[in-house]
Design a protein around this nucleic acid. Structure first.
Lengths: 386, 386
DNA sequence: GCACTTTGGCAACAGCGTTGCTTAAGTGGG
DNA sequence: CCCACTTAAGCAACGCTGTTGCCAAAGTGC
């Protein structure tokens, strides 16, 4: 089994409250790596790292020395002097580690190899029939992975992130009753892929992987909802910079919220689901109505969770992004303005960047994220005296 | 100003990612205090603390020695021997610290003094006209606080938590346009009260304070939604053991989610808000319909956030708790069963315990929480090698 | 060319949890 | 009754953390 390749998430979920010195060391290294990644190609100086992390300059020097020794960071030029010795700039070495991202969709698969900076180095798209047998799908997936994996030195690939349609259990890596694909129910996809690839694997819902990837591009502790309108209507939620999955990875069922009591019956058995209304409007050739309904649902989400932004994605949206963005924004604004109490602030609606490989890249980020800590991390330590 | 009394929340929000030894020390002390509190009157032995925290027994001995020296913990008897030296039991000393909780509602105020274990030691209820001038309200509030504060030694009261109707900004402690009370718009309530009381003050929405208090009674990282049906319909969200407030403390606007497109106009200006439908049913003497609508909204929330439980509270519910619990549970179950995809799991609907002082007690817990760390705390340290 | 400013490394240090061992305090067999 | 055994908790030495004080390096500007 994958006992020799524990999934990275286990590391993050050891989660007994106590902390010791190795943990402290790893945490601070992850914080500085996170700041280095956030700085991008411009780099950061040691003193800037000290300011942003709250560590002393001397501690930053020691930690970055270890990072440089491990090949994860390097010096890269100098800043202009401000009257004294100029600051030396440190940068992440993107080629030091790689992660694989694999998106298994109903009719195609996308595999990417991403470097430490999160940039795609190799991409591979191929048709896939997710309804076929497990062996067939796994073999095809492993082939796609092998093809992109060849672009990096074997030893520097730290794991694979896999995204597929839900529902599934993120912790155990087991699929549940994927809509329309009953034969996958209960299949331990993570363990099977980990054994086949010989790599640690993390498994997540496609919308969660997308949201996670999008969260990396925003800074720090932003909150947003990513609405995905394709063959269905789902959502990925990022709250305070982290993906919210819920206890059983079931969060994000945006499409089956009821917005019309006793409305038309939905395929799921309920009445008045927003997915049914939206898709009916799309089918009727009325994207304006679909966007209006979507905006009402987005307003419900904004008021319930107080998110900063709404991102739109999915095939239906990508067919005419501007129309959907405008339509949803108008509908959302009208709802929020009418209400007013929420401060009448504007909540931007924007298309999700990234295109067709966005989900796969987000899946790769799930693995890379185990190396970094968010710049404003949730270290709960600073308790009152004692 | 309150510069000499920084609100406890600032301690928790220093939030620069870097961690040093004093922080580590404070964190571990907070973890053990949290475990001691969770153990309650039964107490815990040092070795059990070690198992649950992940710390070594020796570290637990050192840290608990400091806690005992500070008067926060004490030895209390022994366990039965299992063949060797019997374990000595440690317990929290409830009287070591106190916190004040103050609930300012539209027509009454409730002040409580809670000890370290979270138990109310003194309670004071009195009528209040929140529509009166700020000076008058503040004077009355300060009087109520002084009355309960007298029940504890002055130096052991560590702060006051204040809950009032939203919207407000939890970070700055400033009120926004409280519905029906426009004169409070922009009032810096936290600073004013901190100065008047000479204590650190945290301010939060009433629903958030209630949810926070309820979260203490559950174990660890539970998620639930607390729905409050009174003069309005609001919610407090607890996700993974922590209250979700959103970026501007605006989260929890459950009542103004649209569940009937183009439905009847709500007081807020929108159409088909669940609050309007619910309250109309209550006014029409049809609590069954109110519960049915509430159940549909609860199902939306469960599917979007994957919470474990739904708690019901508020005056309207308290008038006939069983009827509402049954009605909401039936409606929620019907929705979830129809959908099925969520695993067809049952989500319990229960009345919120605690009664009339629940919000005030939750507000006190907001202050006490700064001393404790959750048993499965979000220490993000354990990153991969290096 | 000298004075000044700023950066970053070196060495000594205090404090953290850890390790190896000792002492305390029970149980149970002979 | 006594001794062997077991388990709990403390003591001392230790390795490692970030911190502090100091100094060399590398610029600017008069």
């Amino acid at each position: 089994m994958s006992s020799e390749h524990p999934p990275p998430s286990d590391l993050a979920e050891r989660a007994l409250g106590g902390a010791n010195l190795p943990l402290l060391r790893g945490h601070n290294a992850a914080v500085l790596l996170g700041l280095l990644r956030a700085a991008g190609e411009g780099g950061v100086s040691r003193l800037e790292l000290a300011e942003r992390s709250g560590l002393t300059p001397q501690a930053v020097s020691k930690i970055t020395a270890r990072l440089r020794e491990a090949g994860l960071a390097a010096e890269a030029g100098r800043r202009a002097s401000t009257g004294g010795k100029p600051r030396t700039v440190l940068r992440l070495v993107p080629g030091a580690r790689y992660a694989i991202g694999l998106h298994l969709d109903r009719d195609e698969s996308v595999a990417v190899l991403a470097d430490l900076a999160g940039e795609p180095v190799a991409v591979r798209r191929a048709p896939l029939d997710l309804g076929a047998g497990a062996d067939e799908v796994l073999a095809a997936a492993a082939d796609r992975v092998a093809e992109v994996r060849a672009a990096a030195p074997e030893a520097q690939v730290i794991g694979a992130g896999v995204a597929c349609p839900g529902p599934l259990d993120h912790r155990t890596g087991v699929l549940h009753r994927v809509t329309g694909l009953p034969r996958w129910d209960g299949y331990p996809l993570r363990a099977a892929l980990a054994e086949r690839l010989g790599l640690p694997v993390v498994l997540d819902k496609d919308t969660n992987a997308a949201a996670h990837g999008l969260a990396q591009q925003a800074d720090g502790a932003e909150s947003f909802g990513y609405l995905h309108l394709g063959t269905g209507l789902g959502a990925g939620l990022v709250l305070g910079g982290a993906v919210h999955r819920g206890a059983r990875t079931g969060a994000g069922e945006f499409g089956h919220q009821v917005v019309q009591l006793d409305g038309p019956r939905c395929g799921c058995g309920k009445r008045g689901c927003i997915e049914a209304l939206c898709l009916a409007a799309v089918a009727a050739g009325d994207p304006a109505e679909a966007a209006r309904v979507l905006g009402v649902g987005a307003a419900n989400l904004v008021e319930l969770l107080d998110v900063d932004r709404i991102l739109l994605g999915g095939r239906t949206v990508l067919a005419d992004p501007q129309a959907y963005v405008r339509g949803v924004a108008a509908s959302l604004d009208a709802q929020l303005r009418a209400h007013g109490a929420a401060g009448a602030r504007a909540v931007p609606v924007v298309p999700a960047p990234g295109g067709a490989q966005m989900v796969a890249l987000g899946a790769a980020h799930l693995v890379l994220a185990t190396l970094f800590a968010p710049p404003r991390g949730p270290f709960t330590g600073a308790r009152a005296a004692l």
